[in-house]
Design a protein around this nucleic acid. Structure first.
Lengths: 220, 220
DNA sequence: TGTCAGAAAAGTGTGGACAATAATATTTGG
DNA sequence: CCAAATATTATTGTCCACACTTTTCTGACA
């Protein structure tokens, strides 16, 4: 029963998994810009591995919606249009609604305590970056206890599809979000999954609308 | 069906794509049973290629929900439980509702004519196999014109998640399905996307319920 | 007899060489 | 000088060989 070498978990992962994580974070962080071509040999050399793990990582990243992979052409970081944003938020609205509905009953008291503190952090957040991070944590935690594997995976894919910079465009309506978050928290605390699910759905939908509007306004 | 030439000189696709298609069909056809372990070397040898294209095919099939892939362990054909069926039908109900809503406006007159004849075929179908196939075609065609790429991919994954034999358990309620199909067709013909979407959603949800019930009854 | 350590076998993971394809540069004909 | 055809180069796709992990087998020891 007693495993002795549990400490070196790093090395128990396969290479292509580690490679995948590194590339994913680079894309999400914005090191690789949307539309940029990713060359197997470059990445392989840069990371000190052969091309094979990189190829496998590409497949995974494609399935997560982060890159587009075409035969003999290579990998390109996906760039997203307004229509994409529309789709992503519409889907998130429906899917996270379902996930929250499943999750509410299963959240521990500590989960809820953490949700509560995240709401407080968002209300007190000075800069947009902090708010965005707490917001991500809040939404992740909301659906954390949902046991539907496929649903979780779909939601994850949708989150990956959003470039990192978009949340900044939402800063104009932080107060609205905060009051919505607090209402959601209330419903969750009462274990009222119906209300919580509906509130989350509306919240996400409205956020999407307002994001699209501000993008159109910026002409960006 | 002539097939021998398919594998020969279709050189425009890459090997791993062809391999992927072959394995996918084998799984869907039931040649590989749920829970069965798939060995890279076996498949590679059997198809006359190296293990590499097989590995890549595995990644794709995993993303489609057909197999489960664990590091150093290999690939296993996914087997599903009643909970899985519950999840799949709940998700299909919501997602195909959205897809139909998008699709109805964009269906061509010929699409609708084809839908109509599929409904007729189902009503006249003698054996279950034929009905099941027409049913699949009907549902696919309903969402065919939906432009939301992610949504389509999600729906495809869900369809893959259902083993081929499960729809046959539904033969007890073909009449119910037929009347529902006809109502859906009516709404689509009138280009009433709201109604069509709701009908599809309810139809799928009810189908799932009744499938689960009949599985429980069979003790299978 | 049971179980536990270590060896052998089976199977997956990775690296490097080569083949096939697409992109680019060069030549050729008008 | 330009356009089309051809040669060159860059990059991806596939194969094979070997390293690493996991599983299975074997045998010693309590």
């Amino acid at each position: 029963m007693s495993m002795n070498q549990d400490l070196r978990i790093e090395n128990r992962d396969t290479l292509h998994l580690k490679v995948c994580n590194v590339i994913r974070e680079a894309i999400i962080r914005g090191d690789f810009k949307p539309g940029e071509r990713l060359k197997q040999s470059d990445l392989a050399e840069k990371m000190g591995v052969s091309r094979m793990p990189v190829r496998e990582a590409f497949r995974k990243l494609e399935s997560e919606g982060l890159i587009k992979l075409e035969p003999h052409k290579g990998a390109v970081v996906k760039s997203i249009s307004i229509e994409d944003i529309e789709e992503i938020y519409a889907l998130r609205s429906e899917l996270e609604k379902m996930a929250v509905y499943q999750s509410v009953d299963l959240l521990t008291d500590q989960d809820i305590k953490q949700l509560s503190s995240l709401v407080a952090e968002m209300e007190n957040a000075d800069d947009a970056d902090a708010f965005v991070q707490y917001n991500i944590d809040f939404h992740r935690l909301l659906v954390k206890r949902c046991n539907w594997e496929r649903l979780n995976s779909f939601i994850g894919t949708l989150w990956n599809g959003l470039p990192q910079q978009t949340p900044h465009l939402l800063t104009g309506q932080i107060e609205t979000s905060n009051t919505e978050h607090r209402k959601i928290l209330e419903a969750v605390t009462k274990r009222d999954k119906e209300t919580a699910a509906n509130l989350v759905s509306e919240h996400i939908y409205r956020t999407g609308e307002s994001l699209i509007e501000s993008i159109r306004k910026e002409g960006k």
